[in-house]
C-alpha cells in the first residue's frame, strides 16, 4: 500500500469494568479506501468507532488522524477535524424535518452566532442560511430524498431514515466517513441503493470510508480491505479474498461459514 495513512489505530485497548472490549487493536485506514470492519456481535466494532469519535477514551494506545493525536479529543471537536459518522441505531433528530436534520449537520460550517440567529435578517444569518441551503439541496438531490424534504424524520420508514442519516454525515463535508451498519434492517433493494450511494460518494469525492457491516456479501463486494475483530482482538486484516480464506476468520465465524462465503 502506497496510499498515505489517514486514520491510524495503534495498540488500542478498552475495557468496561472487567470486560475487555478491545485488546491491543492496531490498523490503518488509507486515504481513499473503503475499509470494512467485520466480526460477530460483541466483537468490539462499535466500540472501536466510539473510540475514534471521542465517546470512549481508550485505556491504552492511540488514534491519530492525519498525524494528529485524537485519542482524547472530545466528540464535539471531531467533526471539525473532518470525521463524520452514522450510528448503528439511527441517531437522527426525530423532531426535525429531513431538511433541518441535514442543515443541522452544517452547524460547524456556519459562522453566525446567537445574536444573529435572533435577528435573522440583519447580521447575515439569512444570507448564510441560503448559502448552506444550496449545499444541502445538492445532498438531498444526490440521495434522491427530495420528496421527503419537509417531512419530520420521526415519521419516515427505516430505509429512508438511514438515507437521511447518510445525508447528514455528508453535510459535514468531512474527509472520513464512519458508517456503522448503514444497511441493517433494509430489504435487498434498499441495500443496493445504499451500496450505490456509498460507492458513489467514494468515487466522486474520493472519500475515505470506514464501514461496519454484517452483510458479508455486500462487504466483500464493496470493501477494498477488511479488518476482522473477535472478542476485541484483531484476528485478521486484508483484502476480501484474503479474508474469505483466512482460517482464523472461519473459526471465529464457526457455524456462520456459509454466511461468509456467500
Amino acid at each position: 500500500m502506497t496510499r498515505p495513512v489517514h486514520l491510524s489505530v495503534k495498540n488500542v485497548s478498552l475495557s468496561f469494568g472487567g470486560t475487555k472490549a478491545l485488546h491491543n487493536v492496531s490498523f490503518d485506514v488509507y486515504q481513499g479506501e473503503i475499509l470494512a470492519i467485520i466480526g460477530p456481535n460483541g466483537a468490539g466494532k462499535t466500540s472501536m468507532l466510539n473510540c475514534m469519535t471521542g465517546f470512549y477514551r481508550p485505556d491504552e494506545g492511540s488514534i491519530t488522524f492525519d498525524g494528529h493525536e485524537i485519542t482524547t479529543t472530545p466528540p464535539s471537536k471531531i467533526a471539525g477535524l473532518g470525521i463524520a459518522r452514522t450510528f448503528q441505531n439511527i441517531a437522527l433528530y426525530t423532531g426535525l424535518s429531513t431538511l433541518d436534520n441535514i442543515m443541522a449537520a452544517r452547524h460547524i460550517h456556519f459562522k453566525y452566532g446567537m445574536w444573529q440567529s435572533m435577528l435573522y435578517w440583519v447580521g447575515g444569518a439569512l444570507k448564510e442560511e441560503i448559502r448552506h441551503r444550496q449545499r444541502v439541496e445538492e445532498i438531498i438531490s444526490f440521495l434522491e430524498i427530495e420528496h421527503i424534504r419537509k417531512a419530520t424524520v420521526g415519521a419516515l420508514p427505516h430505509g429512508l431514515r438511514k438515507r437521511v442519516e447518510l445525508g447528514r454525515a455528508l453535510a459535514l463535508e468531512s474527509r472520513v466517513l464512519l458508517l456503522d451498519e448503514p444497511m441493517t434492517g433494509m430489504n435487498l433493494e434498499e441495500k443496493e441503493d445504499m451500496a450505490r450511494f456509498v460507492l458513489d460518494i467514494h468515487e466522486r469525492q474520493n472519500m475515505t470510508i470506514l464501514l461496519i457491516e454484517h452483510d458479508m456479501g455486500l462487504v466483500m463486494d464493496i470493501a477494498d480491505r477488511i479488518v476482522v475483530l473477535d472478542f476485541g482482538v484483531k484476528i485478521a486484516e486484508g483484502t476480501p479474498d484474503e479474508i474469505k480464506n483466512n482460517p482464523e476468520v472461519i473459526r471465529a465465524y464457526l457455524g456462520q461459514e456459509h454466511e461468509i462465503l456467500n
Binding site: 443541522a104 453566525y112 444569518a125
Partner: peptide, 25 residues
C-alpha cells in the same frame, strides 16, 4: 428566528439526540 436557524437546530439536536449532536460539532 431562533427556531429556524442554526441556533434552533442545535437546540433540537441536543434534545433529540445529544450524542449525535455532539458528533456533528
Amino acid at each position: 428566528n431562533i427556531s429556524r436557524t442554526r441556533l434552533g437546530r442545535a437546540f433540537v439536536a441536543i434534545r433529540d439526540n445529544d450524542l449525535a449532536a455532539e458528533l456533528l460539532g
